[in-house]
């Protein structure tokens, strides 16, 4: 296993690069666990991404960098808390194309997606937009060659290894497979995002 790399980022931040998405999620979970137990120095932001975790607002970055390189990271455990159920109407305009890419019928594609257990690897692109992992590798799909100028809020979409739900209408290049009425982003709620990094998620078929 390749050792994790820790980079200085400016005066007060560190970027930890890991060998895989799974290791990144495990490292992020360990950061949150240590922070919850008061075993992490003050860090203003912990920002997970595809292969990295950024720690921003660190008082003694070089000291912390040395510690982060030495950590032993337990594997990601199946978490005891309940998964968030997101009800989905599998009616997206790209569903048939995704099924064709997978080499299955539309019905089977829906079954595959709604049977998977997802985890929010990280957020980005827009507030409350989560990148969810959980589909097997053979179900990766490319982005659309021509992005849409307006993807409706609540669209459930696929790109690469990820599933995402658009929190609000925006341009987007992901393959749209369905839609949900779940409120992904509400600033009067704590946390404002329904899908926060580390959360478990299931997509539940909603019949019309």
């Amino acid at each position: 296993m390749r050792a994790r790399r820790v980079f200085r980022v400016g005066e007060r931040a560190l970027l930890v690069e890991l060998a895989s998405g799974t290791e990144t999620e495990a490292f992020h979970a360990e950061l949150l666990r240590r922070r919850a137990h008061g075993a992490l120095p003050a860090v203003r932001e912990i920002v997970p991404a595809a292969r990295t975790v950024l720690l921003d607002g660190v008082d003694a970055p070089d000291l912390l960098a040395g510690q982060l390189r030495e950590w032993t990271i337990p594997p990601l455990l199946a978490r005891v808390e309940r998964a968030i159920d997101v009800p989905v109407r599998y009616d997206g305009p790209d569903l048939a194309e995704v099924a064709a890419l997978w080499g299955v019928s539309v019905e089977t594609a829906v079954r595959i997606h709604s049977a998977a257990e997802f985890r929010v690897a990280f957020c980005g692109f827009a507030p409350g937009f989560g990148y969810l992992t959980g589909l097997a590798e053979q179900y990766q799909v490319p982005r659309r060659t021509t992005p849409r100028t307006a993807v409706p809020a609540g669209s459930v979409a696929l790109a690469g290894p990820y599933t995402g739900v658009y929190p609000r209408s925006s341009p987007g290049g992901w393959q749209l497979i369905g839609s949900t009425d779940a409120v992904l982003w509400d600033t009067s709620r704590e946390p404002a995002a329904l899908l926060t990094p580390g959360a478990r998620v299931r997509f539940v078929v909603e019949s019309r």
Binding site: R44, E45, I46, V47, P48, L54, D56, G57, F122, C123, G124, F125, A126, P127, G128, F129, P191, A192, A193, T196, P197
Partner: peptide, 9 residues
Amino acid sequence: RTGHAHLGV
């Protein structure tokens, strides 16, 4: 608005 970067803010 610090402390929300992990939610994409």
